[in-house]
Design a protein around this nucleic acid. Structure first.
Lengths: 135, 135
DNA sequence: TCCATAATTGTAATCATTACAAAATTATAA
DNA sequence: TTATAATTTTGTAATGATTACAATTATGGA
């Protein structure tokens, strides 16, 4: 039995051929691939693969907390620069809240490898009033 | 003289009527508006305003570090869930690097107001090799 | 084998953003 | 002032990732 098979079954996901392939691709390519990269890479082995399937499968994994989506695409928002701070976005009401936390600075391990020009810290979840108004 | 006029001039930006209006809108609406919200709000006062102008003006302010762009829109990337960690994105070569820093937890001030389900910490800047290969 | 269910595909629609060229406005110099 | 140059603004079209959705295909059980 395949470890990926078992893992998917454990999460009530039927381990179809395509799903296993996509999962293994993620295991073997930890460089945060995009949908297009996954699609391009697998289309040789799976000539009938469609991009929609890649989207669907990733969504399935995300819903089951097997995969994380890295940079949420949404509209851009604009802010007059004040002090560094973070934001909380409610996934229900879509509201954006300011949070008075500064993104942590990079320590010595990284500070000569990367010249940081900006940092963004974004929390996601459910805000108070949406928690209350839940059925 | 208007304070916004002076501020823009200080940053070598000609304070045109439209530019001042957009800047003041941001000052008076700190709720992180989108391009569309700015456009919709100002289109009454400035009936000939175009969305392109809003985009252009914001880009100008961003380049002069007067305004910050809040959630960068780009392709989504996918990552198998491991431990919480941060990322560094090089603005030159577009590469994405893992950073072993955990996004800070929300303290007592916020913890009963927000139910956090996810946090993303993203650094932007220039990576080592791009710093070296600069003219 | 037949049927029901689920998985996969492909095309079209959506929508924020960008490119670009034309038009309008403003500044400059004679 | 007038002509000319430079800049700002506009509007339309293109781009490109993502989603909607209906059609097709595969799968597993009776």
């Amino acid at each position: 039995m395949d470890a990926v098979h078992t893992l998917l079954m454990d999460h009530q996901i039927k381990p179809s051929y395509t799903r296993v392939k996509i999962f293994k691709y993620l295991q073997e390519h930890k460089n945060h691939p995009t949908v297009d990269e996954i699609y391009q890479a697998l289309t040789e082995e799976l000539p009938t693969l469609s991009k929609t399937t890649v989207y669907n499968t990733l969504k399935l994994y995300i819903d089951h907390h097997l995969v994380k989506e890295l940079v949420l695409k949404e509209q851009k928002h604009y802010d007059l620069i004040t002090t560094p701070h973070a934001h909380f976005k409610c996934d229900r009401c879509e509201q954006l809240f300011d949070i008075a936390i500064e993104p942590p600075a990079l320590d010595e391990t990284y500070e000569d490898a990367f010249e940081v020009r900006d940092a963004q810290l974004l929390y996601h979840g459910v805000c108070r009033s949406c928690q209350r108004s839940q059925a």
